[in-house]
Design a protein around this nucleic acid. Structure first.
Lengths: 195, 195
DNA sequence: ATACATCTGTTGCCTAAACAACAGATGTTG
DNA sequence: CAACATCTGTTGTTTAGGCAACAGATGTAT
């Protein structure tokens, strides 16, 4: 199994605790909003001691980071995009994944603070970039992987965000939208000049 | 809060582990049947170390006991039958609970070994008896609580089991059936002669 | 302003859970 | 039968998590 995100073998207790905190965090944030949630709220709902929280995360902002990162990672794993090589179909699937992830997050989270959106952007872009860079390197073309991956990840995120903010009745589905911008993004990948 | 089943304040880790084992046990038994399931199967699915299992239960038979006991207890708690006094409505609700619990268990568990049914009978009857005995004692009538509760719990379980085994198209709903046998059971309670 | 409550990080001590490794039982397959 | 695998309980050691208690920050209502 070669994965872009090789998850080290963690103590089952650690996996369990983090998973409990993450799930509880999602629930309680959806209910009270991010800012007004306390560490106590999170650990109470998770059934975990408050001290244990601080053994894993410095504060609730770090848990926000972690949750978004894990959430997006799981979406990639669902579609096995973490264990594949480049293809137009996979690139298309990646774009759809980003669109839907942003869309779900902003609808599900209440109210979507700028805190939240900033973390979303950072984490999602970082993972998209890492994935694409990995694709290009395995292709062995003469494009500069870092340049191309950066451009593509920013473009994808920007377009996906614009799409998700679009409240127009005629907004296309995520799939249609992905088809529409696919050539543009693919261009980013192949046209990047090596340094 | 006066409850028939006062649950001591347990270490959250203990509650969590037992709950994980119980849930995993239900899943894996429904899938492979009780006899062919190993302790390893249970702990693997639960994400718990095998050694930890033995810290809580001597063997899988003990977990079967525990799971059935807890399962039925939770059904009682859902309907707040663990924190109430006697009334015809509550007695009716108790009968319905037993009927549905047996019915669900035998349909959900695959295949329902005699092991399993025997444990069901023991655990459910014991709890029904305890509950009814408690009701009678609080009433302060001259009926002998132990005698009456024993008779009633056996009668309820026997009738509920017969009802659940009934494959007739005209079998009444649990509620209708409870109405039907309610006078008979109530008679058990009031007519028990003191020693 | 001040008293009261709640939240935040942090510490030291204790207990539950993970893990590896063991011997013995059971069980299948050639 | 013998070789092999799998399961069962058990032990000793290490690590994560629970808990009580702390000082300081923030907040809020009188």
């Amino acid at each position: 199994m070669l994965s872009t995100f090789p998850q080290e073998k963690l103590d089952p207790r650690v996996k369990r605790t983090r998973s409990l905190l993450e799930q509880s965090f999602m629930d309680v944030v959806a209910q009270k909003g991010f800012q007004s949630v306390s560490v106590q709220d999170i650990t109470d709902k998770a059934g975990v001691n408050r001290t244990t929280f601080y053994a894993h995360f410095p504060d609730k902002y770090a848990l926000l980071d972690y949750s978004v990162r894990q959430g997006f990672r799981q979406e990639l794993e669902k579609r096995t995009l973490n264990v594949c090589t480049f293809s137009m179909d996979n690139l298309r699937a990646l774009i759809v994944t980003v669109c839907e992830f942003i869309s779900n997050a902003s609808s599900h989270c209440n109210p979507s603070s700028s805190q939240f959106e900033s973390v979303m952007e950072t984490q999602v872009k970082a993972q998209v970039q890492e994935l694409i860079q990995n694709w290009i390197q395995k292709l062995g073309t003469d494009a500069d992987p870092k340049i191309a991956a950066t451009a593509a990840s920013w473009a994808i995120y920007g377009l996906a965000q614009q799409w998700s903010h679009d409240r127009n009745k005629k907004r296309p589905s995520a799939e249609k939208f992905a088809d529409q911008i696919l050539p543009l993004i693919a261009g980013n990948l192949s046209l990047a000049q090596p340094v």
